[in-house]
Design a protein around this nucleic acid. Structure first.
Lengths: 326, 326
DNA sequence: GGTGAGCGTGAGAGCGCTCTCCCAATCCTG
DNA sequence: CAGGATTGGGAGAGCGCTCTCACGCTCACC
């Protein structure tokens, strides 16, 4: 089982290596008969182009990186599979590899050098720490990068996000339509755009809502709900800024003797798997994660093929998924 | 920002390209002073080796693939992040890339050609369909491959698994120690090794257990539990072969007026996130997923560096995580 | 019939790296 | 101190591919 090269294919087809290469790469200007000869030679020899050799001359790796937060932070995030799936859908038909990198010591630097030494053509950054300097560095270096979610500080970087504000408004209107009188919200961390926007969007609809802070984790959801029913026992509708927090909060409600949704209506955000494992199943705001991931991939590929193309932001509209909790 | 090559480094350091290469690759036989000169040259020029060029001559891609089932099947699988994390931990320090491939039309063939054309050095196969011919083909071609989980048919292939039988026995003993008299189990699909072994291991300890079949999904957990309480209303202890099924089953128990764990003790399997989002939190059998993934990566790397090394199986011992459900 | 445009093809120069020689310098041993 | 053994470094040949360039051919037009 020896490797078969383009040279070999050319020999078998009776053409030059250049012509064989043209056929492999689908160049148009090749005579039909020669094209067929080459194609026959390819299948008869079982030829597969050596990517390293190609990559060496084209200076393209045909691989992109997906930079993820590490397991701990990912833990709560049910989206990984959806993100991977969305990116894959766009990227695979083009033969581009998806390289996964979990944040750990030195990962981001690693990704930078992979990018610079041509091992990666671009990266998608997920859940970036607002203080992280990497996105800025990448942009400054003119390297293709796409962010999942709006950056905290405005910067000329391409990102894909869901309309968080609109999503929170959807939740607010649902609660109002349920005739809730005493409405509260458990927020996400206020140092993240998602946390901020979900609160702002909600308050825009329900200005007098009771606000209790959380940080998107289950734990914080439990704690926040305990505080909420203590400070505001007559609450009858609550928007919880992530399903995971809602998942922690609902048992607290139950233990306090309140029924969901009869006594207290609950609306979550994310439509993650936590929405289905809650009891009752969560009414929640859905983000089209897979589509968003696909769009990130598309944006990244565009940047790769058209360097220095302008930064854009693509914002998807969320939708309300009505289940049993509110 | 032009690319700096080894040639350039050699020039700056005043040595030959060969020597510079030796330093980059950590060859021992280089004079200290020259080594330092080269290292200075590397950092002053900001040199990064071009992986494609290296790969072309070494015939190593320094990348491995992780072949996953598609999103639908993955959906229930809470392990993805843990698997990725475990593999990453082993692989990154070596500068090896982790390429994610979700099964879709043509993925497996794609992976095969990536392997053959030297774009991937090896693959880890997760949740392979028992009928899938790919593992066999890979083995036949002498390509490095590691399976997550024992293959259904015995074959000379390296795999890493948890001792499913022992795990089920752990659950059984827990239920017995709780003085349960009427013990049942909800199984996984019986055409998978995991499904088979968990049932067998359980029956070995509780031969007279009531057996109801499921397929690892939440839905099936609900349905199975409904059947169970109908056919066996006095059940007071049940081993459910996956946390996800347990997560679907517990609300059924609640709705039937049974309290968990007071009326019915429940033990799950996996220690996935579904165990924590259940109410009450699940007592379950834990598999050390991250460690197992790391071991898979190690085994794969060994096969890559030592081709034709014998197939081995590594089996991890599970442990019981006692929480509130049983 | 001469000229020029247009097109398909082949020759060949690299892309940046590793690695095998081979030579020179140093070391040990008798 | 001669001889061989050992060691470090350099020259250079590729790895397999793409892509530019120039060549030869056909065709149209004046």
């Amino acid at each position: 089982m020896k490797r078969v090269t383009l040279e070999e294919v050319a020999r078998v087809a009776g053409v030059s290596r250049a012509t064989a290469s043209r056929v492999v790469n689908g160049a148009s200007s090749v005579d039909e008969s020669l094209r067929h000869a080459v194609q026959r030679a390819i299948s008869s020899t079982g030829y597969l182009p050596n990517i390293a050799a190609r990559s060496l001359v084209t200076r393209r790796a045909d691989a992109i990186g997906l930079l993820l937060p590490d397991e701990r932070r990912m833990d709560g995030d049910p989206h990984l599979a959806s993100v991977v799936s969305g990116v894959t859908r766009v990227v695979r038909p083009l033969g581009v590899h998806l390289v996964l990198m979990m944040t750990g010591p030195g990962t981001r630097e690693q990704a930078m050098s992979d990018l610079r030494c041509g091992r990666l053509d671009g990266v998608i950054l997920v859940h970036t720490d607002p203080a992280d300097p990497v996105p800025g560095q990448l942009i400054a270096a003119g390297l293709p990068v796409v962010l999942a979610g709006r950056p905290l500080e405005p910067m000329p970087i391409t990102y894909v996000d869901v309309n968080q504000t609109a999503g929170a408004a959807l939740a607010a209107r649902r609660l109002k339509s349920l005739q809730c009188n005493r409405i509260a919200t458990i927020t996400g961390p206020q140092d993240t755009p998602a946390g901020q926007d979900r609160l702002a969007g909600f308050l825009a609809e329900v200005p007098d809502a009771v606000v209790v802070h959380g940080d998107f984790t289950r734990q914080s959801g439990m704690a926040a709900m305990e505080r909420l029913i203590r400070c505001c026992p007559d609450v009858d509708g609550v928007f919880i800024a992530s399903d995971l927090m809602a998942n922690g909060a609902i048992p607290v409600l139950h233990r306090s003797g309140r029924k969901v949704p009869d006594d207290v209506a609950v609306v979550g955000f994310d439509d993650s798997s936590a929405a289905l494992t809650s009891e009752p199943e969560l009414t929640t705001v859905r983000q089209p994660i897979t589509d968003m991931a696909a769009e990130m991939a598309r944006q990244l590929l565009r940047q790769i093929t058209e360097p220095r193309s302008p930064a854009v932001s693509v914002v998807f509209e969320p939708s309300l998924v009505v289940r049993d909790s509110g």
